[in-house]
Amino acid sequence: MVHPIDSSSIENSLSLFHQMYRIRMVEEEISRRYPEGKMRCPVHLSTGQESIPAAFALSIKKNDFAVSTHRGHAHYLAKGGDLKAMIAEIYGKATGCSKGKGGSMHLIDLNVNFMGTSAIVGNSIPVGVGLALSAQLKGTDQISCIFLGDGAVEEGVFYESVNFAAVRKLPVLFICENNLYSVYSPLSVRQPKGRSIANMVDAIGVGTGTCNGDDIYSSQKLMQNAVNKVRSGTGPYFLEFSTYRWREHCGHDFDNDLGYRSEKEFLEWKSKDPLINLEESLYKTGVKLGEKVDSIKASINSEIISAFKFAETSKFPDQIEAYQDVYAKEELSK
């Protein structure tokens, strides 16, 4: 059921819509153009999972830290990462956020403290904890947000990181996007049936919260409360959101035909799409609002077109650059 939006939450709803729609459209444009073969690196799209980064975007501060995974486009964008630099990176251009060295799986934007993403499952989790340690040592009120998938909690480094964060009461927010799969492997072959990830983390000694990611307002509330809590200095917090990746694990297409999950399951999740629901609610609330939605869409669409144009027309790095930056050169002060 699509309900009109309460007048007090219109601004917030528009912001959520803006965030989600932008991520969706970026991922879908990548998907549309990927078969051209010009984006020559693996891409892991977040189509279907936008509500969590959207809630995140509206809950954190610019100087908070974030790290993410192979599926990191959405988190980079939600943190405020530069869209043009991300698309250029995927195209392997010199103007890319990692100068073409890293590709889709190695996104960074130091202007907004988006510190990196990793192609190795679990690899960025302790790094996020280390960022939190640095904030604690420096006495700032920054928090460190760590995005991870349901698969990453199977790595030993996850437990080690959560444990250390708990021991030192570090300002870490773990954000687990549980999309039920690791590549084509369902949770059932990887984790015991009925055991919730959040409950397990709770037992390690870290506060937890769970939410259905399709419920955008509840997700946002949970995210904001958790951010506030972590910022207040009471230690780490862990959030688990249920969500669903619409497209194939890696690449641009749909892959329900492979048989590792059913078309029915996909369609069920898709029918609960929080983006479409929010969009319909906004339109239903009134003509004026509908016009605002239209203008948000138009501005995002043109932003995306120009980002791709920027990427396509940017220069490739010189071959010689492949051999540069292996070591840092600037001597450290003191």
Binding site: K101, P317, A322
Partner: peptide
Amino acid sequence: MPDVPEPTSLALTKGF
């Protein structure tokens, strides 16, 4: 291979 991590960009792996 050179003592360099393999870069991602198509342009950077030319001749690499």
